[in-house]
Simulated assay, not measured.
Amino acid sequence: MQMEELSAAHGALKAVRAGAGRDIVLLHSLLADRHAFDPVLPALAEKHRVTVINLPGFHGSQSPMLPLLDAYVATVEDGFDEFGIGNDAVLIGNGFGGTVALAFALSHPERIAKLVVCDAAATFPEEGRQQFAGMADKVAAGGLGSIAEIAAKRVFSPAYLTAHPEKIEERKQVLLGIEPKAFQAACKILQEADLVPLLPHMRVPTLVVCGEFDQATPPALNKQVAEKIPGARYVELPGCGHCPPLEQPQAFVAAIKDFVGL
Rank of each mutant, 00 (worst) to 15 (best):
E192H: 13
D194I: 12
V209L: 11
V196W: 08
V209P: 04
V209I: 15
M202T: 10
Q191M: 15
V204W: 03
R203N: 08
P200W: 02
Q191A: 01
D194E: 14
L195N: 09
T206S: 11
V209Y: 05
C187Y: 00
V196I: 13
E192G: 04
A193K: 10
V208R: 06
V196N: 03
L190M: 15
L199E: 05
Q184W: 05
A186H: 12
I189K: 01
P200A: 03
A186V: 01
C210Q: 15
R203T: 06
P200N: 01
C187G: 08
F183V: 08
A193P: 00
L199M: 07
K181I: 09
I189V: 15
L195I: 12
V209E: 06
E192S: 15
I189G: 04
R203S: 12
G211S: 04
P205V: 03
L198M: 12
K188G: 02
D194L: 13
M202Q: 08
L207T: 08
P180H: 04
G211D: 04
V196S: 15
A185C: 13
P197T: 06
A186M: 15
D194P: 10
L195M: 12
K181C: 09
Q191E: 15
A186R: 14
V204Y: 06
K188E: 10
P205F: 05
I189L: 06
H201W: 00
V196A: 11
P205M: 00
I189H: 11
P197V: 04
L190A: 07
L199T: 06
V196L: 11
P197G: 13
L195S: 12
V209C: 11
P200V: 04
L199G: 01
K188Q: 14
Q184S: 10
V204P: 07
G211T: 12
F183A: 08
Q184Y: 02
F183M: 12
P200T: 03
V204Q: 00
L195Q: 09
A193R: 01
T206R: 05
V208Q: 03
K181M: 13
H201V: 00
P205T: 00
G211A: 11
A185T: 02
Q184N: 09
Q191C: 09
I189D: 06
R203F: 02
V209W: 10
L198R: 14
A186Y: 00
A185N: 12
K181H: 09
C210P: 01
C210T: 14
L207S: 03
G211E: 05
K188V: 05
V196C: 09
L198G: 01
V196K: 13
P197E: 11
C210Y: 08
K188M: 05
V204R: 00
R203V: 07
R203D: 09
A185P: 08
A193V: 15
V208D: 07
P180G: 07
M202P: 01
P180S: 06
P180A: 05
K188Y: 07
L190P: 03
V196H: 02
T206G: 03
P180F: 05
P197R: 08
A182H: 03
L199H: 02
Q191H: 07
I189M: 13
A185K: 08
L207F: 04
A182S: 12
L207N: 00
A186N: 14
D194M: 12
